[in-house]
Design a protein around this nucleic acid. Structure first.
Length: 270
DNA sequence: AGTCGCCTGGTA
DNA sequence: TACCAGGCGACT
């Protein structure tokens, strides 16, 4: 799915495209994607205005003027697209939110893993937000070191654990580890303080680069305007197995770590 | 830590 | 035909 840079790209676009718009209708043919139910969500949101759009971890939060919040998670293949009502249907269009001014916010999702959830009170909201660790773009070095020191799991697995640090997925985890020449399998707590410092900086660097390039459209991702991002043109190791390491020229290797495709240079990353 | 499930489609 | 996919939770 969209990781932090992709979700943040979409959030920024939605902020300028649909904040202030009134929700006129919500329709879906895949009610499983809407929680607690289509009817409840319709009742709570139709007629309200979107006042703010925020991001937490990989979630997008739509604040409404009646105090309710709609939260979306795009999972692997979700897209949030702003279209004109008259535009042709999008591929895998699952949820259609009609907005004032002839616009539609469309949630498209090939695999139907994504969801839209209504939050009705502050307690529920707080509960959801507290499930996540500090934002990967904001975490202090001190906090980061503490998280690493507290785990024997492979460092790549820890980076992708949203409860520990939020926003990093497989693409940016792989690239940040290559940039710092760290073997993804290294138990987190065995990293030197120097390596931890480098990794902290590299995470910030790759995520910012991802945002700068509008996200990575390696396979599926499109932004809110339906455009591809360009970070895939700058991958260091992700999806580059067999190609040469930019640092030393030896071939990038792929293996599975905790069930996820993992890409690294065995010569550079020790 | 590893596997499976949720779903569907692209590619080897 | 089989395998793989940017996420993530449940289960063992």
């Amino acid at each position: 799915m969209p990781e932090l840079p992709e979700v943040e790209t979409i959030r920024m676009q939605l902020e300028s495209l649909i904040v202030g718009r009134k929700i006129l209708a919500i329709e879906t043919e895949t009610p499983k994607m809407i929680q607690p139910s289509l009817a409840v969500v319709q009742k709570a949101t139709v007629g309200t205005k979107i006042t703010k759009i925020a991001r937490r971890a990989k979630l997008i939060l739509f604040y409404l003027d009646n105090g309710r919040v709609l939260i979306s998670h795009l999972k692997l293949t979700g897209r949030l697209l702003v279209r004109k009502k008259s535009d042709p249907k999008d591929d895998w269009q699952r949820i259609t939110i009609s907005l004032a001014g002839g616009l539609e916010l469309r949630f498209a999702d090939l695999r139907k893993f994504g969801w839209l959830k209504l939050i009705v009170d502050e307690k529920a909201m707080k509960g959801i937000l507290e499930e996540f660790g500090p934002e990967a773009t904001e975490i202090s070095l001190r906090e980061f070191e503490k998280i690493l020191a507290g785990s024997r799991r492979p460092v790549k697995v820890v980076l992708m654990d949203q409860k520990k640090i939020s926003g990093i997925g497989n693409i940016y985890a792989n690239d940040a580890l290559n940039l710092t020449m760290i073997d993804p399998r290294t138990p987190a707590r065995e990293l030197s303080s120097q390596a931890a410092g480098r990794l902290h900086g590299a995470i910030l660097k790759v995520l910012r680069l991802g945002i700068k390039y509008g996200g990575a459209s390696d396979q599926f991702y499109l932004d809110a305007k339906g455009k591809k991002g360009h970070y895939q043109e700058h991958f260091l190791v992700y999806n580059r197995q067999g190609e040469r390491c930019f640092n030393c020229g030896s071939p990038i290797k792929k293996f599975f770590l905790a069930g996820r495709g993992t890409y690294f240079c065995e010569k550079c990353q020790k």
